[in-house]
Structure formats: C-alpha cells, structure tokens
Design a protein around this nucleic acid. Structure first.
Lengths: 207, 207
DNA sequence: GTCTATACAGCGATAGAC
DNA sequence: GTCTATCGCTGTATAGAC
C-alpha cells in the first residue's frame, strides 16, 4: 500500500455525487427512456439544481455515455465473475438469465434494450456504446455455448454465435413484454423455455 | 347498393389529409419513438403547419390513439385474411412472422414494440391500446397453436397461450435487435429458429 | 461543488383570420 | 381546412456569484 490513497470512487472515476446522479439517471432511462426524462427530473430527486448537474456531466449526451460505460462495466464484471466461479456452461447460461431477471424485478427494462428502441435518436457516442454492449454479451455467450456443446452440458442447432444472438434478442424481447404487463412470471416462463431448450436433456420438463 | 355513397376514406373514418398525417406519424414513431418526434416534424414533411395538424388531431395523445387503432386494425385484418385463406396452422404461423418481417424491411420497429418501451410515458388511452394489440395477437396465435397441435402440423411444450406469449416476445426482441444492427438477416435467422422449433418435424434442418 | 439567474430553442396547444 | 401569430411551458445549456 505504498500508493497514495486514491478516492473512494469506483474505477469509473466519478465522485460520490456523480455516482448518485448516475444512479438516478439510470433508473429514469430504464423506466422512461432516454427521451423520457430531463435534467430537471434528476435534480428534483436529488434536491439539487439543474446547473449543478451540468457541472458533473456537461451535456445529456455525456451523461448517457457515462451511464452506458458504467452499466456495461458492471454487466461484464458479472460475466467475468461467472467465469471465475468455475460454473459449467449450463450454469453460466442460467446466471446470464438471472442477471436479466434481477433488472426486471427492479421494475426496469434493460438499459441497452431501452436505448435500442431509441437508437435512431441517440448521439453517435451513445450509439457506439450500445452496440458494444451487445457485442460483448454475444461474444461471452458464444464462448459459453461453444464450451457447453463441447462438454455436453448444452446442445443447440447452428453456430454458437448465431445462437448467442437469439438468446440476447429473446431475453430483451421477453423483458420488454413482461415489463409492459408488469408480470415477471412472463419473463421467467420465457427464459425457462429458452434455457431449457439449450440444456442437455438429462431431464426435460413437459407441461 | 341502396345505401348512399360513403366517403372514400377507410372505415377508420379519417379524411385523406388525416390519413396522410397518420402515415407520416406512424413512420416517425416506428423510427424515433413517440417521445422522439414532434408535430413540427410531421408538418415539415407534409408541407403544412402545426396548427393544421391540431385541426385533425387535437392533441398528440389523440393522434397516438388513432395511430394505434389503425395499426391494430390492419394487423388484425391481416390475421383474419390468413384465417380466410384456409392456411393450415403452420402456414399461418409463417404468415405471422412474415408480417413482422415486412415491417422490419421497411426499416421500422413494430409500432407497439416501440411503444412498449415507452409505455411508462404514454397517456392512459394509448397504454390501453398497446395492451389490446398484444392481447389480440396472443389470442390469435393461441388459437392457431391449439389447432396446429391438434392437426399435427405443430408441436410445442406447455399451453398454447404460454407459447403464444413466447412467440410475440421473441419476435419483438428479434426486431428490436435486428433493427439496432440494421441487419434483417438477424431477424430471419431468429424466426427460422423459432418457427422451425414449432413446426412438426417432417424435415428438421440442422446446420 | 452548488447556487441564482438566464438565455434560447423547441414543445404542445390555442385564437382568430381567411 | 389551412393559415399567421402567439402563448405558456419545458428542454438543454451557460454565466457568474458564493
């Protein structure tokens, strides 16, 4: 510990207030969309002024990019964690579905699923970040799928990359529709069917 | 034909201009979202003023409701058409996927999929209409699935209603992600996998 | 780091002439 | 049915004091 003490802020390098701003903004975007909230909404919830927000994030687009960076970092960290835990491929897939479920249970849509809908209205830097989120998700899933097919814990038709894409789009769609109906069961039913179809049929459930 | 001649407007009862407004607004919502366009955008594209728009649709919410009514009517008409054509259940399912593909190939997101993302920001009458769209879709699909299982052209685990929900959410998710990447192939690959898994395995394709 | 104050564009919407 | 003109409000963003 010879290094000088760094701030208590996470590796993203934001101050405590900046993190609080991101927390509120994240929830607003996941609930109302990027075009459905304003600086005034954040300011009101934090009890500060709009001007103070602009000190931390000069523009709304910059805030959006920071939002995406933090969200993607956390998501990737969760995937890395699953790798480190030494789960088998099937368990990693279940863990992936659980990540989505956690978001939905908070009453939220996936940040990047929401931004995917609004993609055509986003500033270029945000667009890039949204695409990167999905690229990283699909890459991780493709690796998991390939290893799962090799060790026999998973089975699927087509390439791992292709199947990874299907998993991502199915989960995003299931979240979107489940949140619409405020019905988490719709989501769990969808992932059970999806992940069940990928698991090696040791015991297939039939209703 | 003893009835007096009615207007040439479709059964929705809108004038030619109102229909033109709906055409433009529909494309704007499907591209940028309900919160991503304004009366000024429509007016500019039609070469009229914002005030003229308010004559046809008093408020934006009213325009949104009219948009949903027309879209749902057209969708239901297409489903009715599939019923009348006497397709078997598997062919009806394919037709359903084709409807989505048609929308995506126009570079658009499903109107109601887009509005599902923005659901929390919509006025109450629009929320109701969005839910009705999905209810009608799921009901039609459930009927098709049930008859398909009976006549042997389809097979699936679980209830028809449950499976119908999965089809809707998978297709909406696939549209959302395919449009994000501006890649129609992503969508066709997803529906091929989905509908292929529902078809009776006369000839299953394996890659 | 937060404030007051403000600029300025855009929004949905209305009044009233034509 | 469309226009000009305008209203009131909200949006993002900035200047400058504390």
């Amino acid at each position: 510990m010879t290094n000088p003490r760094v701030t208590t802020a996470p590796r993203s390098g934001h101050s405590h207030t900046a993190e609080a701003i991101l927390d509120v903004a994240e929830r607003l975007v996941q609930t109302y969309g990027y075009n459905g909230f304003s600086y005034a909404d954040i300011a009101a919830q934090l009890g500060i002024t709009k001007a103070a927000l602009h000190y931390h994030f000069v523009s709304k687009g910059e805030l959006g990019v920071a939002l995406l960076a933090r969200y993607t970092d956390r998501f990737v960290a969760a995937l890395d964690d699953a790798d480190i835990q030494g789960f088998d491929a099937a368990a990693k897939l279940d863990r992936y579905g659980q990540l989505y479920l956690d978001v939905l249970q908070g009453g939220r849509m996936c940040l990047c699923g929401m931004l995917a809908a609004e993609y055509q209205t986003l500033p270029a830097p945000m667009r890039t970040a949204v695409l990167q989120f999905f690229d990283q998700n699909e890459s991780w899933l493709a690796t998991v799928l390939a290893s799962g097919r090799e060790d026999g814990s998973l089975r699927f038709d087509g390439s791992a990359e292709h199947t990874a894409r299907v998993i991502v789009s199915d989960l995003e769609g299931a979240m979107l529709i489940a949140r619409l109906h405020n019905d988490v069961d719709r989501f769990t039913a969808a992932i059970d069917r999806l992940l069940g179809s990928l698991h090696h049929p040791r015991r297939r459930k039939q209703t």
